[in-house]
Design a protein around this nucleic acid. Structure first.
Lengths: 259, 259
DNA sequence: CGTTCTATTGAGGGAAGTCAACAGTGGTGG
DNA sequence: CCACCACTGTTGACTTCCCTCAATAGAACG
């Protein structure tokens, strides 16, 4: 069970490195994190609304959605997570959660104890800062999704989602922006865009017939990237993919234990 | 100009204390932060999309909206900020921003330099953690807003917004949940709920005629709180208003300079 | 090789948008 | 102190985008 864990922690570290500067000792501390592998079936919730958690979840394989739910049971997905992402990194500082995580496809999760995550964050200020920055990036995505469902037409909403996932998959080394895996049903696409499955189906048909994008059999193929970007009104700035280092780490703690 | 700053920093500290444990030395460090007071007119943007900032903004008086904008100029507000809030605390770790801040009413802002904020975060791990947690709380609000505009009918969207602001104002010591200031036009309410000003007007009329809530002349009066909560399908858990302390601070840095 | 989930299509309805006119409201200056 | 102007709120008529309901086809899985 160790090899998959190591590669999962490597892809998590690489995700952090997209936005933050991570030193070698910090990287090896991250790679040394203990975790437990869990398998989750498609359409199974594995973190529940209102739950109190003592661990965070790293996506090893599959696709995860963070969602909110209204009384009548209808759901709104507020972010998608691909392998290497940690959907509930937030829970380290706020362990009572008000949303859920669901597997959109059969998914492998690695559970990391809060105590371990807190310890390396406390020992390596650079890691704490990287965690903080990743939480901010997540917030930025939520905020952009509010714009998406609040102010864009159906075709633009879907186009925007495809653009976002294209860039994120590309940067994570999982395919490229013209072809990447997105194992999600039209029903879940509807929950992600604030539409109904019927309207998603019709809008996808339109985008397909205009030879802009094809979303079929768990893969997205983008035929005309510039036009998709134009339809979506997409600007990737909100993904915060420019690596920065605030200098807080330098001003602050050097690791107080051997990395 | 010093007395208003002190009270502004006090209300900011109080906001942090709603969610985090702040020690006395951390509190006095926060109160000692230098800042510059700025006046912003109604409907003026004071932080612009794509800008690179070296300071964060503390709301001293007034009302601020964070917004995203689409090509055609239509806006979606993704969060409202009341006095004591710091809408772009995030910018400490991610200074290139992809959204804007606008004053919804004449507003007083206190500008705090990133360098100063980074320094006290680096010296006081408890403050860094409180900042981080507040960023997570902001993200939680964005996420809930996505659910709001994506999956709720017009009356529920407005009701949810009123419930949220009622609780937040109450907890900030600015009125109570039955009566509080919300100096916002119907146009801006539309931008916050993903509706049009015309439909907001009609929906407000309906809520008023049912004697549930009156939003008039910069004040919101809630006549029937339980029914408003029911219409909104409101659960305040997403505001993360339970004070927690992860224990990271204890495990980590004690202040390395005198607080 | 059937069962179940997922995708597709049609018909009709409804919530919210658009356009347009007018009425309050508040600030400003003559 | 009133007249003016710009902004905000209000209402009506009409339109449209998306939803609902329903039936069927296709795909995946054991």
């Amino acid at each position: 069970m160790f090899p998959p864990q190591v590669s999962a922690l490597e892809s998590f570290t690489n995700r952090l490195k997209l936005r933050s500067v991570i030193t070698a000792s910090e990287e090896s501390a991250l790679h040394g994190l203990p975790g437990r592998i869990i398998q989750v079936g498609a359409h199974q919730d594995f973190v529940h609304l209102g739950q109190n958690v003592d661990h965070a979840c790293l996506v090893v394989a599959g696709l995860v959605g963070r969602f909110g739910q209204s009384r009548d049971g209808s759901r709104q997905i507020t972010c998608l997570y691909i392998p290497g992402d940690m959907p509930d990194l937030h829970s380290i500082v706020s362990p009572t959660i008000s949303w859920g995580l669901t597997a959109l496809t059969p998914t492998t999760i690695m559970r990391l104890a809060h105590t371990d995550l807190r310890e390396i964050a406390a020992c390596h200020f650079g890691i704490a800062e990287a965690f903080w920055r990743d939480c901010v990036a997540d917030g930025s995505i939520f905020s952009e999704w509010t714009v998406n469902v609040g102010r864009r037409a159906a075709s633009a909403r879907l186009a925007h989602l495809f653009c976002e996932m294209a860039i994120r998959c590309e940067r994570a080394g999982q395919g490229n922006r013209h072809s990447f895996a997105l194992p999600i049903t039209q029903n879940d696409l509807a929950d992600a865009t604030g539409l109904t499955n019927v309207h998603v189906n019709r809008t996808l048909r339109e985008l397909r017939s205009r030879t802009i994008v094809t979303a079929r059999s768990k893969m997205v193929t983008i035929h005309d990237w510039p036009q998709l970007v134009s339809i979506a009104d997409f600007d990737q700035a909100f993904l915060l993919l420019n690596r920065t280092n605030s200098g807080m780490s330098a001003a602050a703690s050097r690791p107080r234990r051997g990395g």
